[in-house]
Write a protein that binds this DNA or RNA. Structure first.
Lengths: 204, 204
DNA sequence: GCAAATTTTGACCGTTTGGACAAACGTTAA
DNA sequence: TTAACGTTTGTCCAAACGGTCAAAATTTGC
């Protein structure tokens, strides 16, 4: 598992690369990979295109670092689910954490959704490897909890999928959610409302 | 509400326009609007680019007819939910229908997801108008059922969102679902498994 | 303060893209 | 048969795109 040694970077390189990642996240999340241009990202980062290309060798490279970082963040909540903990509490925490991510990192969620929608060309191996392994492990934990009667019995895989789908919906389909809820119910409280609803749905 | 009079079309025009729509659906669903090229669509439809542009005045126009048709199909299952029917049966049928759509029309689902992800630039008015009105109406029906004790009490809006999110997940995130389930559980039966799970989740 | 290293810029290039157009081809109906 | 109409094609264009490069400007280490 020897990955290429991380190149030494100057302070400016670290700062500018981070600045570019931030800008690229904004742009990629809205337009997808092919729909985004280097110029757009450079603009959003407040620098010229050649300058940006001094820090990343091409468009792919920018996208790659985003996706890589994304996957870590994304799987963290599921990793945190603890077999030794109280099942109800663990599930509730998991839902809460995912919901907070939908609220606080909607761009990351949309970037991920975009990638999957297009067939996950860049992360399919990770999905089949790391993600599958993690889900297999946690599905076993959930199945165990269900056998012990601590959780209502159902299919643990689809149980996990349902939590993913419902929580991420509030990030990915936010426009639609707000359009349907209108001004009153669609305000800032919508994430809290949703979290409460989902706890009832999955634990009630 | 006078929309522009539908132009008279020859038989060939009707056939070719349909052929183009079919090809465009395939391409747009995979790459999104900006990520798709007219050449790709023309190729997929087996004709030259100028020929395609004889039938649709530009890329936007192709996309527009797809989106328009999509919305009809999309809302049909929810419209079909009948206040006079048995609540459990109505909800079950709704989930089944949505699940069948995820299985049989995944391209339509992905096209829709793409559009929403990008902020729904072309259909926001429809979401705020027609869709909101329909959901308001059906949410009231569901709330009524809940008050009558025919359905477990919860927030009817988030209840509908949850059904949307979970069913469409199996179309939009199909790659991920298959990657995680693997060959055995991820075969053709996955839609049936999911449907059963969701019935339990929403009605059990 | 200065030389070396790093950062930024403007000008440029080949390719792809959306779209225009006129000419050619095919079909139909008087 | 032929004129009118519908369809298809090859060619072309301007803009946008991803990316290069050498030179200028700036920062850094001594």
């Amino acid at each position: 598992m020897d990955r290429p040694a991380a190149p030494k970077r100057t302070r400016i390189q670290r700062e500018k690369r981070e600045l570019i990642r931030e800008a690229a996240l904004e742009v990629f999340a809205q337009h997808g990979f092919r729909g985004s241009t280097i110029d757009q990202i450079a603009d959003a980062a407040g620098m010229s295109k050649p300058n940006l290309l001094y820090y990343f060798k091409n468009k792919e490279a920018i996208f790659a670092t985003l996706i890589q970082r994304l996957l870590e963040t994304w799987l963290a909540p599921l990793r945190a689910m603890d077999e030794a903990g109280d099942p109800q509490t663990e599930i509730r925490s998991y839902i809460r954490r995912k919901m907070e991510m939908a609220r606080d990192f909607p761009r990351e969620s949309r970037l991920f959704a975009n990638e999957i929608l297009q067939g996950a060309p860049r992360i399919l191996p990770t999905l089949e490897g790391e993600l599958k392994a993690l889900v297999d492990e946690k599905a076993a934990v959930i199945a165990h909890w269900m056998r012990d009667g601590k959780l209502k019995t159902s299919d643990p895989y689809h149980f996990i999928f349902a939590i993913w789908a419902t929580t991420q919906h509030y990030a990915d389909f936010d426009v639609q959610v707000r359009a349907v809820l209108g001004d009153k119910r669609g305000g800032e409280g919508r994430f809290e409302d949703a979290a409460r609803f989902l706890e009832g749905l999955f634990l009630g």
